[in-house]
Design a protein around this nucleic acid. Structure first.
Lengths: 112, 112
DNA sequence: GACGAACGTCAGTGTCTACTGACAGATAGG
DNA sequence: CCTATCTGTCAGTAGACACTGACGTTCGTC
C-alpha cells in the first residue's frame, strides 16, 4: 500500500479503463451503474477500478439511497502534476545545458 | 504496443524504479552503467526499464564508444501534461458546478 | 587478432493485476 | 415482511510484468 499520492495516481491512471473512468466522472457525476454501462467488462471489474481510483484519492463519492455517485477529485491530481512539472523543468534545463555544451564542442572542433 | 504517447508515458512512469531513473537523467546525462549503479537490481532489469522509457519517448540516447548515455526527453512528457491539464480543468468545472447545485439545494431546504 | 569493458538480448520464473460469476449488504416501495 | 434495485465483496484464473543469470554484440586498446 503506497502512501505517495503521485505514485498512487500514476498507478491508477496507467490502466486505460481507469483513465477512461476518470475522464467520464471529470465531466459529470455518474452512478456506479452508469459508469459500468459505458464499458464492455463486468460490473465487478468496474467496481474494482473505482476502488483503486478512490484509494488513490482521485474520486469523490456520495450516496443517494442505493446509488453511489462518483465524480473526479481535482486535488487528487495535484501531486502528480507537480511531479511532472518538476521533471519537465529539470529535463529542459539539462537538455539545454547539454545542447549548448555540444555546440561549444562542435565550434571548437570546427576551429581545429 | 501502444501508439498513445500519454498512455505509454503513464505506463512507463507507474513503475517506481523507472520513475526514479527518469528523475536521475532529468538532472544529468548518465551512462547505463551509472544508472544501474544507483539501484539494487540487476543490470538486466535496469536495461529493460531503459528500453521501456526509451520506447515511451521519454529518453534521449547517444553513444560514446561502448557507453550509452541517457538523458530525459522533455517533449516525451508533453501529451501527459496536456492530459492531466484537461482532467484537472474538467474536474474543477464539474466540482464547482456540483457544489453550487448543492448550495442551491441546501438554501431551498432552509427556506422550506 | 585477442582481450576487456560496456551493455543489450534471451529465456525462464514468481508475483501482481485485470478479469470472471456468485454471493452479500443496503435501500426503498408495496 | 417481501421484493426489486443497486453495488460492493469474495474467491479463483489467465496473462502481464519485473526480476534473474547467461549469452551475444560493439568498441577501443594492445
Amino acid at each position: 500500500m503506497t502512501t505517495d499520492p503521485a505514485d498512487a495516481a500514476l498507478k491508477a491512471l496507467a490502466e486505460p479503463r481507469r483513465r477512461a473512468i476518470l475522464q467520464l466522472v471529470a465531466h459529470d457525476e455518474l452512478a456506479a451503474g452508469e459508469i459500468a454501462a459505458a464499458f464492455d467488462v463486468s460490473r465487478t471489474a468496474v467496481s474494482q477500478h473505482l476502488t483503486v481510483l478512490k484509494e488513490a484519492g482521485l474520486l469523490h463519492e456520495r450516496r443517494e439511497a442505493t446509488r453511489r455517485l462518483y465524480r473526479a477529485r481535482p486535488e487528487g491530481l495535484a501531486e502528480l502534476r507537480d511531479l511532472l512539472e518538476d521533471l519537465w523543468d529539470s529535463a529542459l534545463d539539462t537538455a539545454r545545458r547539454l545542447v549548448e555544451a555540444d555546440r561549444d564542442t562542435a565550434a571548437r572542433e570546427e576551429i581545429a
